[in-house]
Amino acid sequence: MHPADSCVTLTCAQNTPAAAAGGPVLAIESSCDETACAILAPDGHVLGERLISQDAHAMFGGVVPEIAARAHLALLPALVRETLAEAGLAPRDLGAIAASTGPGLIGGLIVGANFSKGLALASGRPFIAVNHIEAHALSPRFPGASEEPVGFPYLLLLVSGGHCQCIAVEGVGKYRRLGGTIDDAAGEAFDKVAKMLGLGWPGGPALEKLAEEGNPQAVSLPRPLHGRPGCDFSFSGLKTAVARQIGEDVQTALPRREAADLAASFQEAVADVMADRAARALDMMTTPSALVVAGGVAANRVIRARLQEVAKAAGLPFAAPPLRLCTDNAVMVAWAAIETCRETARLGLPFPDDLKMRPRPRWPLAEMAARFGTA
């Protein structure tokens, strides 16, 4: 049975008599430039949600870690109060408090995790450290995220500004990396090409919009690693090819028609690579239940459509979170905490005391199995 099929009581344990297991989970996301808070009922129903996309980074053409951390520090207190008010709850009504504790920008992680730990200590609630990548990996299982419940194992294609990986998701805490980028992540390539075209930041959505006006066959661009064994990615060469098309000596912006054709051709090349790599990753799994895509780039409609074709050709369902849950958000963090609690209860294990866990800029998914004693 999929966890969304019934309301299950959380059974997280904490070394404090005040811990109220079984109530809603409040989660904070602050791993990059999104400041977010959400409260989920144990069945995944969203009771309250707030998200602020920091706009102070636009003038720099990318996220400035120090600015992001300071913004999280300034925004979180009011954001949490507003989310609790929307849910009609007080901290003492919560069952647990969670936060992205890695990987990500260390300054933001420290702010979010420490704020959450303080709230947990003050309210006597357990604190759950959530792996940000695991939150993305489990987000397609969020109730209502797809037409059909997504069961294990499934292939996850995680594509965002900082990550591009093919992961076999075999269960909560059970992840097997099949391949990943050897240079730039897909989202990073989108942002850099958008900057070359003078589209500003964040570049991904702006490039996709411009590409709607262009011809995806207008410019011949390479498809790095396309057709090669395995499912690794490479986007550095594609990015360089776009730069050559623009020309280093161009002092003025390209005519809009040329820029649109180049944007569309670049997007088409990325979609071709994604489809090829996903198909090969599926071949590396024995009995995948679905092809799943998550991360910010998963919001790109052209890439989604191409991956849907791959899933259909393989006779598998295609699943992706709703567009609003593709980018960093606190709903997926809370859901990952709920899934972790359920798995802990299923195995009859005491929930670990995560209050002592420090935020980590790197936190490999392979380490998550240790939480359940299966490393």
Rank of each mutant, 00 (worst) to 15 (best):
H2Q: 04
V8T: 13
T11N: 11
C12T: 13
A13C: 12
P17N: 02
A20S: 15
G22C: 07
L26H: 03
A27P: 11
C32N: 10
A41H: 02
P42A: 08
D43I: 06
H45A: 05
E49R: 15
R50L: 09
A58C: 10
M59Q: 04
P65A: 03
E66G: 06
R70S: 09
R70C: 07
L73N: 10
A87G: 14
R92F: 04
D93V: 10
T101L: 08
P103G: 14
G107Q: 05
A113L: 01
F115V: 15
F115W: 13
S116K: 13
K117R: 15
L121M: 09
I128W: 04
H132E: 00
A135E: 04
S139N: 10
P153V: 15
P153Y: 04
G161S: 06
G162V: 12
G162A: 01
C166H: 00
A168R: 03
E188L: 07
M196S: 14
G200K: 00
P202S: 00
G204I: 08
P205N: 07
E212Q: 15
E212W: 07
G214T: 13
R223S: 02
R223T: 11
G230P: 07
G230Y: 06
D232C: 10
F233Q: 03
S234H: 01
S236P: 11
T240M: 12
A241C: 05
V242D: 03
R244W: 13
R244E: 09
Q245K: 14
I246K: 09
E258P: 11
D261H: 11
A263F: 01
A263Q: 01
A269L: 02
V270H: 06
D272G: 13
V273M: 00
R277E: 03
R280T: 10
A281Q: 09
L282S: 02
D283T: 01
T287W: 05
S289G: 15
V292L: 12
N300Y: 02
V302M: 10
V302S: 13
Q308C: 15
E309L: 12
A319I: 00
A320F: 06
P321A: 15
R342Y: 12
R342I: 15
G348E: 04
L349T: 02
D353R: 04
L355P: 09
L355Q: 12
L355S: 07
K356I: 13
W363T: 07
P364K: 00
L365H: 06
A369T: 11
A369V: 00
G373H: 14
G373N: 04
